[in-house]
């Protein structure tokens, strides 16, 4: 084993050169500790790896029932990759996740900035803001169905009867999208706000004092002190919101069922339609693997970004 110090090869047995801190030498980690992870590995094998291998098996066969299956090779992959409805669902999914991030990140930061810094207002606002996060996802769908109904719902009745703007999420695609986005923003912006608030509270008072002495405006205080100091928590918020919105199922399924037409059919809703409602296990398996690989790629990219933020030393 060798390590390179300033380009010179140096042999040594138990040293590891970290590239980030210059010439910091540290002991080689003892890999025997991984044996302690074995129980978790066994659980993961049963809960994730064996089902994943089963999905791989499904994806290359036409399955009629127990013990009746025909090997079809990559036919389902070809069919799914060329499937227009899957393409539509995928773009819809990216549009949805993009909008979610565009709205929820700035809104969450704004809410965090507006929250009180001390006194009784802190616990009061924290509890109020956290409330939507405590409601079960299916219930959230049901709440918004009732809320937006044109005949009895507060929002739907207000739009239709009081403002005279026709609004029905079961009839027009745009209304369905607006309702789903409103629901998503109402449900998950609190998470971004809470994380951003935690990041804000962690900034030492000295930074603000220095900013005041320099006569910095509120905007430049935000831009040069608060935002950089919040980078770590905001990256975590970004990751969580992207992954959650990319895998969203329960709320839009309860609210719109993917309709009207296919207007709000996101990837997981379409997947369940193929695999469970039509019982096409083969195409469903191929679809699952495509979905899985997309999620895996984004998780990996974001994980690397997160690692980099950690090493950058902010927060």
């Amino acid at each position: 084993m060798w390590v390179s110090v300033l380009g010179v090869r140096v042999s040594g047995d138990h040293f590891n050169l970290t590239r980030y801190g210059g010439l910091i030498m540290e002991k080689w980690p003892n890999n025997r500790a991984w044996l302690l992870v074995l129980p978790v590995f066994v659980i993961v094998a049963f809960s994730a790896i064996i089902p994943l291998m089963t999905v791989i098996n499904y994806s290359v066969q036409d399955i009629f029932g127990p013990g009746q299956s025909v090997f079809v090779g990559t036919e389902w992959f070809g069919q799914m990759l060329g499937n227009e409805r899957l393409h539509d669902a995928l773009w819809r999914q990216f549009l949805f996740s993009g909008l979610v991030l565009l709205i929820e990140m700035p809104l969450g930061i704004l809410i965090a900035l507006a929250m009180p810094k001390k006194g009784w207002g802190v616990p009061a606002s924290l509890v109020t803001i956290a409330l939507p996060l405590l409601i079960p996802w299916n219930t959230i769908g049901t709440i918004w169905i009732i809320f937006t109904r044109p005949d009895i719902g507060l929002f739907g009745y207000g739009m239709n009867k009081l403002l005279g703007i026709p609004f029905d999420h079961t009839a027009t695609s745009l209304d369905a999208w607006i309702t789903v986005m409103l629901m998503e923003v109402w449900h998950w912006t609190p998470l971004v706000a809470l994380l951003a608030y935690a990041g804000l509270r962690a900034i030492p008072e000295a930074y603000y004092q220095a900013a005041r002495i320099d006569g910095a405006s509120a905007w430049s205080t935000f831009l040069y002190i608060q935002l950089p100091k919040m980078r770590g928590v905001l990256t975590i918020a970004f990751l969580l919101r992207f992954m959650d919105s990319f895998l969203i199922y329960a709320e839009p399924f309860v609210l719109t069922g993917g309709g009207p037409g296919n207007a709000t059919t996101f990837l997981s809703i379409y997947l369940v339609k193929i695999a469970l409602l039509q019982f096409d296990l083969g195409p469903g398996g191929a679809f699952s693997l495509i979905y899985f690989v997309i999620v895996l790629l984004f998780s990996f990219i974001f994980y690397q970004a997160l690692q980099r933020v950690g090493k950058g030393g902010t927060v």
Partner: peptide, 30 residues
Amino acid sequence: WMVWTVPTAIFCGSIIIIVLAMAVWQTVSP
């Protein structure tokens, strides 16, 4: 119930073998 086929068994088997081999290799020479 896992409806194994020969190609998928070879595929999954080779990935598992490579991962295990790399784990052993990493232990022998980190």
